[in-house]
Design a protein around this nucleic acid. Structure first.
Lengths: 196, 196
DNA sequence: GTCTATACCACGATAGAC
DNA sequence: GTCTATCGTGGTATAGAC
């Protein structure tokens, strides 16, 4: 296998994943055919199977890549130690990251039911690890008397749902800039967990 | 047409809708076949079309029924005038209503993309009417100096996303009762909008 | 690695007998 | 209203030539 081949192969695989991502997000996994994906990339359907085992594994790869990139990006933020500053950082990060990747977010939240049980468990574990970062902040803040949360787990789910909801209505060309939206949500999230 | 026939026909239609609701929620609209639905009801495929124009209209009917029932149920609550009491009533209503109907909620939020443009617009208008009830409360409360919200529309979306998120994790047999969950969310929602 | 061709199956929807 | 049968289409995945 020459370097040329390896590079081209990797590129084709990436283009297939990019096309699948776009189509799955727009029409839903079950409604998209392998023929459509091949057409987007400029291949015949048979050629797809040189790069992908089957349709479901294509979905799994997209979800896993998204969740792992999300976790890595959060770690790269190097959020402050202080719980209230960390919360602000988390809110801004979550909104910014998700608003920039509507397709990935949509798929990761909506196509879980198209996964087999073992794949489902793997993706859910990654999501749980992400949620646990926020839960840790809230729990530490509550212990330190900086936050007031009755139940750190429930507060975590509430805050994340609130933040992720931004992707359903935010448009870059809309009334509010992303910066303004972030600021509003920082304030609401801080108040919701009783930050002082 | 005898009364008997009319009644049986209405019942069959209702059983078809109930089966479709369950299957659409579990597997997704696109992944469910008319044959599956017929099988659930104990019919052959062809018989379905005596009750339903086509597959998409089945989805539209389910969504429209859900949204209209939701609006009617909210009106039936006769919430208090005072914005803070009204907010508490809305939060409790929304959580209780949605937690009791996970299938309907799932479909109404996840299968919008399977609607044609005109059907989509109709369902979205109903959703918007529901959201506007909360937005009105928040705007009135802010005007009266009871709430502190920078942007009533964004606060509305944030609160509704937070509340609806309960359906993704709440289980009746879980750690918390629905009453406890309601109480936690009432507190968080009140604080998030700066209720005093 | 991609192509053409095809196996095999399921889909939504309809026709016409009962 | 329901049945059986079928139309026409399109699905995933594979085989084998190049």
């Amino acid at each position: 296998m020459t370097r040329q081949t390896r590079i081209r192969s990797a590129e084709t695989g990436a283009r297939i994943r990019a096309a699948a991502l776009r189509l799955f997000a727009r029409d839903g996994y079950a409604a998209v055919s392998m023929r459509q994906i091949a057409g987007e990339v400029g291949l015949q359907v048979g050629a797809l199977y040189n790069h992908v085992a089957d349709k479901q594994s294509l979905l799994v790869v997209l979800m896993r890549e998204h969740m792992e990139a999300l976790l890595a990006a959060l770690d790269a933020e190097a959020l402050p130690e202080a719980p209230d500053a960390a919360l602000e950082g988390f809110v801004r990060f979550h909104i910014r990251y998700h608003a920039a990747r509507p397709d990935e977010v949509f798929i990761a939240y909506m196509e879980l039911r198209n996964l087999g049980p073992e794949n489902f468990a793997g993706i859910e574990a990654l999501r749980r690890r992400y949620e646990d970062r926020l839960e840790g902040m809230l729990a530490r803040g509550a212990e330190a008397g900086i936050f007031s949360v009755r139940d750190a787990r429930v507060a975590t789910m509430a805050v994340i749902a609130m933040l992720t909801g931004v992707t359903t209505w935010f448009r870059p060309e809309g009334r509010l800039s992303l910066d303004e939206v972030e600021a509003i949500y920082v304030e609401m999230a801080r108040k919701a967990v009783g930050a002082r």
